[in-house]
């Protein structure tokens, strides 16, 4: 077994810069993959096991996965202040950039071709959640219960306009309880 390398923990500035870099360079989602590469593989600031534990929690809890992960990693490395720096690093620079982009496109929308291009861009962009949606449906367990819960949550939001919070709390508690019972019985 190779000797474990002792990597010194990053300073707060290094931590901020690492998160900022990911926030500014990762396009098209999948940021958690970038975090794995940067923090576990390249810099080796945190172990793979610890990272994956965090990812499971980040995905299970509500909240944006990547922000949840930045809190997790930040906390592991520098406690409370680390988690604050992590979130700020991932959000602050990227927020500034997106607003600048918005202003840029906002001043250009009166130009005919820009508007046409934006419609095309928007149409292609809708493909992203569509792809995600199809992937999620395909990975759902082929049983009545998960499918029914999916259909009900779709209809509740689109048709009945039930506030999202109530969908997640109401339907979520039913669904999570049923899964818990299933796991307790040791079903796969």
């Amino acid at each position: 077994m190779p000797a474990k390398l002792q990597i010194p923990p990053p300073t707060l500035l290094q931590l901020f810069m690492a998160f900022a870099r990911i926030g500014l360079t990762s396009f098209g989602g999948g940021l958690s993959g970038w975090l794995l590469r940067e923090f576990v593989e390249t810099r080796q600031w945190i172990g793979r096991e610890e990272f994956l534990n965090g990812l499971a929690v980040a995905q299970a809890l509500p909240g944006i996965n990547v922000t949840n992960m930045s809190i997790w990693i930040g906390y592991r490395l520098h406690g409370t202040i680390g988690s604050v720096i992590g979130v700020l690093g991932i959000l602050l620079p990227a927020t500034t950039l997106i607003i600048l982009l918005g202003i840029l496109f906002g001043t250009l929308t009166d130009v005919g071709p820009v508007q046409v291009a934006l419609v095309g861009a928007a149409a292609a962009a809708v493909g992203l959640p569509m792809h995600l949606g199809v992937t999620m449906v395909l990975h759902l367990r082929r049983q009545v219960l998960p499918v029914a819960i999916m259909v009900i949550s779709f209809l509740a939001v689109v048709w009945l306009h039930v506030p999202l919070l109530w969908v997640v709390i109401g339907l979520g508690s039913v669904s999570v309880t049923l899964e818990w019972v299933r796991l307790r019985r040791g079903k796969p």
Binding site: A60, M136, V137, P146, F154, V157, V158, W180, L183
Partner: peptide, 29 residues
């Protein structure tokens, strides 16, 4: 166990909500 249950239980809801997002975005185009 409850973390696993939470992840599995929220998954179909997340799927339904993403489909709702797609539906709404398609209408807005």
């Amino acid at each position: 166990t409850f973390l696993n249950a939470m992840e599995l239980g929220l998954r179909p809801i997340a799927a339904g909500l993403i489909l709702a997002a797609v539906f709404v975005l398609l209408q807005s185009l």
